[in-house]
Design a protein around this nucleic acid. Sequence first.
DNA 1: CTCCAGGTTG
DNA 2: CAACCTGGAG
Length: 296
Amino acid sequence: MAAIDSERQAAIDDRLQAGLLEWYGVQGRDLPWRRTSDPYAVLVSEVMLQQTQVSRVVPRFEAWLERWPTADDLAAAPAAEVLAEWSGLGYNSRALRLHATAKAVAEQGWPDDEAGLRALPGIGPYTAAAVTAFALRRPAAAVDTNQQRVLDRWDGAAGRTAVEVRRRALEFVPVDAPDAWNHALMDLGATICTARTARCDACPVASDCASAGLVDPAAERALRRASRQAVPFESTPRFVRGRIVAALVEHGEIALPALAAALPAGITAERIDGALSGLVRDGLVVRAGDALTLPT
DNA sequence: CTCCAGGTTG
DNA sequence: CAACCTGGAG
């Protein structure tokens, strides 16, 4: 019976939640950005953490906040200094987007929900959820790769889409402690339930985990690779490029408006356009006005 | 030495 | 879906 299964699952979920929160209370890491609910500080930490390990972020985070304690301070700084302070952290464009977000916030204030955060430069689904949970202290699932791996193992369900995992993750988030919950899940993934090994013997929730003692990191890797490459060839740009060239081989010359009709049905205009400009750029197709030909 | 992870963007 | 960058892993 589905009702019994879902009841049983709900009981397991409850124990996972309680067990992990208890573990976090004792074993959780004390990190500088966890001592604040200032959205600016949280955002700075999250952007840095997107690309850099915790131990390296700590000193850079503290230096950053000392130099620019508020979004207004950062907004007023010259871009060159922002980049200089960012140096060594990689992905300079992220520093510039953080700067842009600081300017937006200095003008308009902070958005008060996840969707509003999502609209700011450099803030995607993960970071929007993280700021919502850690600063706004409202329920949100900040599903990074750590969280996704832990949740997949709990459920014994590999290969779920990001949307599926996010929906599942949200089921666990306690309304009264979204921040502790997200931190706890990340800490478990970072210290016990890691990508390369699962130390189930040290895991506080192993008794309710579908994968306890069964985790096979090599198999997980293989599965990820496979699902990543599971994209049908027909949906790749290479396929469209190939069909365009084949059509030109067959017809000799094609007028641009007639191109779509000379290709297999179901290819969007955007894909045709993209493939064509790539072919022209690469010199595989010559375009003179509306006339498309192969190079001579 | 090469390879890869890790969110967001276009 | 590749590109963005860098440190860490193999």
